[in-house]
Design a protein around this nucleic acid. Structure first.
Length: 431
DNA sequence: TCTGGGGTCCTAGGACCC
DNA sequence: TCTGGGGTCCTAGGACCC
């Protein structure tokens, strides 16, 4: 049996902890560059704001409806997440942290689950200020579905029976009650059924979860995929997706950004790609991996009717490395190959691919010209210094050292302080 | 005027290799 | 004039998840 614990409107909830005036107010947290809404409070959802909706389309609600928007504050969300996850883990014996705001809990041998879940929920709320919902079921997909029901029952009166609000345990319901809930639930709410497949199912007359589970598995496999068949089995109570306690190392590490303003010149791109590569290399070393392929891309905005340009290139490395200097050299080499002047470039990024464990060493013939990783101790020292004194304390020269603000950096107009992770930004209580 | 970022998995065509 | 089959790599794009 599994539980899924999920923070409600997580980023908005994090912001509200330190700014109580934002309670009950329609609130959105915007994406990088203050581009679109990536988290919405219930009040903001009630205004009809959609997930991912561009800010310029909803900006007018500031005046007319008191909408408040904030730039994202990921250090804060990451730290609040850790606190929430630590408490959530007390529900069972195993935990899989699935995303910044949700985790699965393995419930093997746990009795009185529903009651325990309510207690954990109350504890998380009291200790961290984050409201959560908990779904429980025999498979991960069912736990996800139960979580959806717990949430809707909580915030949309009349959608589901109110006793399922906040904590919903599908495993303790009888078959008839489960069927009843399946019949009320749109097939598109199922974990693994996205916009596209949901639409195809509906065109075939399969509208609810009940319709879907009544299909024949062979048909699901043939018409769609083996992946969807797995989802079907999970909904029928057959567990196919295991709990992953230890996160598997990433196969790719990316750092990509939309620029604050369009960029036209190679010099700015070099700065941006240097910065992106440095940051990705930090992540790479943190996970104790090396990379042997780096992909660089640049492109214009599809939303503008200007000449379009999009290119990417993969640059193979002679051997797996994790040091920033070698990676920057490779990335800039690729960038210069794909750069073409005359376009309003709005986004660039790099992806480190073909990651391998840093401990693995491939033996090789010595041709007397080996390009080695920079001293590992040097990289380690730079990471430590940047960790301790703030990102950007030590940078590579091609990241640009001028004092003026770089055109490509992000716009973040409404960023809140890092209340819990930066000494100078700790909130003060007025006496 | 203004439209996010980080992942995984899969597919398909073209270039190139033997 | 006649012209195979198997494979990899690259690039691009689409599906899903958060």
């Amino acid at each position: 049996m599994f539980a899924l614990i999920d923070g409600n409107n997580f980023y908005c909830s994090c912001e509200r902890i330190f700014q109580p005036r934002l309670q009950k107010v329609p609130l959105v947290v915007l994406s990088n560059n203050d581009g679109c809404a990536i988290a919405r409070s219930e009040e903001a959802k009630a205004l009809g704001i959609k997930m991912g909706q561009p800010w310029f389309q909803i900006k007018h609600l500031e005046q007319s409806a008191g909408l408040v928007s904030l730039s994202p504050n990921f250090p804060l969300y990451g730290d609040m997440s850790l606190r929430m996850m630590r408490l959530a883990s007390e529900l069972g014996d195993k935990q899989e942290i699935y995303s910044i705001d949700e985790c699965f809990i393995g419930l093997q041998g746990i009795s009185n689950v529903t009651h325990r879940a309510s207690e954990i929920r109350a504890k998380i709320l009291q200790w961290t200020g984050i409201p959560t919902c908990i779904g429980i079921g025999h498979t991960k997909t069912l736990a996800k579905l139960a979580n959806h029901i717990a949430k809707d029952a909580d915030r949309k009166p009349g959608s589901y029976p109110t006793r399922l609000a906040q904590v919903c345990n599908l495993a303790e319901l009888n078959e008839r009650q489960r069927q009843f809930l399946f019949e009320m639930t749109d097939v598109g709410e199922v974990w693994g059924i996205g916009r596209r497949i949901s639409q195809q199912l509906k065109e075939a007359g399969i509208k609810t979860v009940k319709d879907f589970v009544e299909l024949d598995p062979g048909t699901v496999r043939k018409r769609f995929s083996v992946v969807l068949e797995r989802t079907w089995r999970e909904l029928r109570g057959q567990s196919c997706i295991e709990l992953e306690e230890v996160p598997t190392p990433k196969k790719e590490i990316a750092y990509t950004r939309t620029f604050g303003q369009p960029v036209h010149n190679l010099a700015s791109l070099i700065e941006a790609v240097t910065e992106f590569t440095s940051r990705a290399a930090e992540k790479l070393r943190k996970q104790q991996s090396k990379t042997s392929t780096i992909l660089v891309f640049i492109h214009t905005s599809k939303h503008r009717s200007r000449p379009q340009y999009a290119r990417s290139i993969t640059v193979p490395l002679v051997r797996p490395v994790s040091d920033t200097k070698n990676l920057i050299n490779a990335a800039l080499h690729g960038l210069k190959k794909i750069y073409k002047p005359g376009f309003d470039l709005t986004k660039a990024g790099i992806v480190l691919m073909d990651l391998t464990n840093a401990q693995t060493r491939q033996a090789e013939l010595d041709f007397g010209e080996t390009v080695l990783d920079s001293d590992e101790r040097l990289m380690h020292a730079i990471d430590e210094i940047n960790d301790r004194f703030g990102r950007g304390t030590i940078i590579y020269g091609s990241a640009g050292v001028g004092s003026e603000k770089k055109v490509w950096t992000m716009n973040q107009q409404r960023r809140t302080p890092s209340y819990t992770t930066t000494l100078g930004e700790i909130p003060t209580a007025l006496t």
